[in-house]
Design a protein around this nucleic acid. Sequence first.
DNA 1: TATTGTTATACTCTATAACTATA
DNA 2: TATAGTTATAGAGTATAACAATA
Lengths: 165, 165
Amino acid sequence: MVVMFMSWYDRCVAEDARAEGIERLRAGALGDDLSFLLARANALSLSAGNAALRPFGLKARSYSVLVLSAEEPGPSQRELAEFLRLDPSQIVALVDDLQSRGLLERQPAPADRRTNVVAATSAGRALLRRAQRAARAAEQTVHAGVTDDERMLLAEALRRIAFLD
Amino acid sequence: MVVMFMSWYDRCVAEDARAEGIERLRAGALGDDLSFLLARANALSLSAGNAALRPFGLKARSYSVLVLSAEEPGPSQRELAEFLRLDPSQIVALVDDLQSRGLLERQPAPADRRTNVVAATSAGRALLRRAQRAARAAEQTVHAGVTDDERMLLAEALRRIAFLD
DNA sequence: TATTGTTATACTCTATAACTATA
DNA sequence: TATAGTTATAGAGTATAACAATA
């Protein structure tokens, strides 16, 4: 189990001189550690995704909120927090930002006036369509090493881990 | 592609009232998004791992450094940075901490005096053995939903994503 | 001139608690 | 009394640049 592995790597060109050392580490204990592989795969996926979303003024988190708020019916902020495993206060900031850009709206829920339902605007949906194309292209690049069959098995296994209830 | 999903969830008890909303989101667009599943699975794995390592004064990052420095021969700080996708300056802080606790040593490399080889001490190895047991137990809990066969396929697919060269 | 390790700093993200308005 | 949303703030993690020692 490991970590974020963020972006020093993104500006680092792998050196041949170090390659053998890295290969050695990879053959060691962590190279078979499922949590480590999960963390490293996620870090690569995340940084590729963030890079692809940057032209749209989005990051993984705001992109996720936008995707979910484009569903029908839209989620409450509480549901967003739980599904994305983010603190409700962080959802406030994300929704504030997207709302100020006219990409989504807070709609007071008729049944419970404490609750805001978050719904993408048509501008939000338009941006989302373009962003999704870019995100999917980035995802394909990151997952280029696995076949379509493997990808399905991978998704199923991850789903069982991600939603182990 | 998504995000950290850290620990609000860890102190939140899922409510039945929200469960149907969550289920709906799960059936939507992100529920099939491999990057999202990767992020969420990793978040769960990471927080379970951090919890299991806390009694040993370790987190995922320091644990990873300790594991790698217990290999023979030990890695240089540069190799650690690249393998863990952390900035070299972050490795300094991690190694400082572990060294101050007597768990590893910096050994100047004979061949290149710029380089520090990081090597676990016997105290570090002893702690590591105990920590590894706890980490593996936590990992099993997180991955309880997948069979052994699936776990192997999962590891292989993740390896190809994590080390796509 | 380039690389390893290091220090420093600004920034983003995360953790936590308190507050308000509704229920 | 409990929940949804909000605000505030401290702490951890990340991004970036610069520096000394060595190659």
